[in-house]
Design a protein around this nucleic acid. Structure first.
Lengths: 218, 218
DNA sequence: GGGGCTCTCCACCTGCGGGTGGAGAGCCCC
DNA sequence: GGGGCTCTCCACCCGCAGGTGGAGAGCCCC
């Protein structure tokens, strides 16, 4: 896979943790620790100086936090990959970090072997996410398109149906034909759902429908 | 982690592959193969009969393909997890399978150890995705919200701007005020972008904007 | 039975949205 | 300089969308 060692930079504000990780990584074959940073700004600086292959990044750091540091590193040095290694894997930390460009995400209960594997995976162009993080990603993936979607704002089923057809771009008469009712009925439903959803016209209604995941067959 | 063995069902239409996997899994400690199916329908039936912990599922199968089988299994038996094991990891296979409820996704070049790890991860409530698949997920994650977003259908920047404001629910006069131009200009832009995007009215335009990710500041 | 909700329908009015045709100014590129 | 593109603006017309007020029928629940 790799004949030359993977050059790694460690960024963590807690000295004990930082030095411990450096020690741990130093023992692993195929990994060379080229530097250690105590905050985000230093991490960015050291990346510019040493050009490491992978940065092992803590998220909660003073001055410039891990997400911001990740973003800067990824935009300025796309060849340097970032693996986040943090204590908790809450959504507020996780998704911003991943969107900032982190390719790996591990919690600190990961063992040395896991860290090494994630570093190697990331270096080889893949990704190194802990299984728990993978699961979060899947949930987010299926959350948006699946959308079980309760009807919000007290919409009736009929009103939601009309709203879905509006979002499909149908005119009032077309909706009437589709639902086998009179155009007047459609207008009534529309006026009611406009009032309930606090929108002014069908354009805003379409936006509302998209935001609330109201589509046909729902 | 688990004192009792993980009960696994294998689904693959190619006999050699199926039996090979069964053999391979049988050698692994902590895994018990409870059945093998040659197509999707049989997989669903065998899941109902044996209630396995995990189904190792090929995607391309006759009668009822793996995606459909996964969906049925996950809705009817939420306790049974599905790990996809297929030859290629193209997007057309990958995302439908994950959205159908697969918690694991491996390609067939994975070794026995990898498969075992994925099965164990999935069983413990996490997820078992190959590093390549993880990377795809990350790309999709940052593709949607980031949205570098080329302007489709030859829209000009100004037209896209107007379209974004339409999607925000603004009226023509409001858009005119926002852009410091005359309402007539707004109407011109709107008529042009309607023609280019082949929409009929602003309701359809809003849907178009949402589908193409045209929002403000883009 | 009475009250409340939903779905259905009607008439009327206003105005914004959408369509057409035309035109001038600034820009870039050949 | 000429041609093409974009952005800007105007006038005119029409129709559907949106707002109001009202009403009858079916349903469920107290």
């Amino acid at each position: 896979m790799s004949d030359r060692p993977i050059r790694v930079l460690v960024a963590d504000d807690q000295t004990v943790v930082r030095e411990g990780i450096v020690m741990l990584l130093g023992l692993l074959p195929g990994i060379e620790v080229v530097g250690a940073a105590a905050d985000g700004e230093e991490a960015v600086r050291l990346v510019e100086r040493y050009g490491p292959d992978v940065v092992l990044m803590d998220l909660r750091m003073p001055r410039c936090d891990g997400v911001e540091a990740t973003r800067r590193i990824r935009t300025a040095h796309p060849a340097t990959e970032v693996v986040v290694l943090t204590t908790y894997a809450d959504d507020e930390s996780l998704f911003p970090a991943l969107q900032a460009g982190a390719r790996g995400y591990l919690t600190k209960d990961a063992g040395g072997e896991e860290i090494a594997r994630a570093i190697a995976d990331v270096r080889s162009g893949a990704a190194g996410l802990s299984p728990q993080v993978q699961r979060r990603l899947l949930e987010r993936l299926s959350a948006a398109p699946a959308g079980p979607a309760e009807l919000p704002d007290g919409l009736t089923a009929r009103e939601a149906e009309v709203l879905a057809l509006i979002a499909d771009g149908l005119s009032n008469t077309e909706i009437a034909q589709q639902l086998f009712v009179s155009p007047a009925t459609v207008k009534t439903h529309i006026n009611n759902l406009f009032a309930k959803t606090a929108v002014r016209d069908r354009a805003q209604a379409v936006a509302y429908a998209f935001r609330h995941g109201i589509r046909r067959n729902s």
